[in-house]
């Protein structure tokens, strides 16, 4: 038996991949924006927020960072309905990604906040700014700038990790590969193509985040370029 690498099925099935790419991008964008926003909030709580809020946030961060994404996803999709919280696979996937990225970006952003020189807080206070204003106007932007590369890498990791949402029937790129595999029995080719798609996506995402950083943090331009 000679194995022939055959991509002839692509002509018929490429729309499945296109749809998968759209879903993967949607999940990454929604998960990324809300997840990082939530992460910034949690980072604020852990670094500067009210003391009573810190332990619950710490527990959340540790729980998420020390369990696999897939188990979190299964728990939300299959487990939570037992408590009466039921949601569709896309909502469950979005929620799982937000919760997951929220915990990771919390730790990353917190490192950025804690690296802020003390003098900046003092200067803010001297200008009669309230603590939240100091955070919003003075601290957060340089903090994000400091940790932007780490945050970008984390977002790429989350995008690649989203491959498992196919397990709850969300129709992303991996679902497309599995779907085509079960119709054409061209397993290797289907996974090969989807791997190439993910590689292209992660290259684009990283490039896009570099540009975004370029626009968000004008002061960095002279330093690094």
């Amino acid at each position: 038996m000679t194995y022939v690498f055959d991509l002839g099925w692509l002509a018929q099935y490429y729309p499945v991949f296109l749809k998968g790419v759209a879903i993967t991008i949607e999940l990454t964008l929604v998960g990324g924006v809300i997840g990082i926003g939530f992460g910034i909030f949690c980072a604020w709580v852990r670094a500067l927020g009210p003391t009573w809020m810190r332990p619950p946030v710490a527990v959340y961060v540790e729980l998420i960072r020390n369990t696999p994404f897939m188990v979190q996803l299964f728990f939300i999709f299959f487990g939570l309905p037992a408590l009466g919280f039921r949601m569709g696979e896309l909502q469950a996937a979005n929620l799982a990604m937000i919760i997951n990225l929220g915990a990771y970006s919390c730790e990353i952003v917190r490192a950025g906040i804690e690296a802020t020189p003390k003098g900046q807080f003092e200067a803010g206070a001297a200008l009669a700014l309230k603590p939240l204003q100091v955070f919003r106007l003075i601290v957060i932007r340089p903090a994000l700038q400091r940790i932007w590369p780490a945050l970008s890498s984390q977002l790429v990791i989350v995008m690649l990790g989203s491959a498992v949402v196919s397990q709850i029937a969300a129709e992303d790129v991996t679902f497309a590969a599995n779907f085509i595999q079960s119709r054409t029995f061209r397993a290797f080719e289907a996974y090969f193509v989807s791997t190439a798609i993910y590689l292209a996506l992660s290259i684009c995402l990283r490039k896009g985040l570099d540009y975004l950083g370029f626009f968000l943090f004008p002061s960095a331009r002279t330093e690094s370029r």
Binding site: L160, A163, F188, Y191, F192, L199, I203
Partner: peptide, 17 residues
């Protein structure tokens, strides 16, 4: 290559490929 593609795909390719 290995950081830019999902671990899940690497597993599939190793297993079926």
């Amino acid at each position: 290559l290995f950081q830019g593609t999902p671990l899940l795909m690497q597993l599939f390719l190793a297993f079926f490929g």
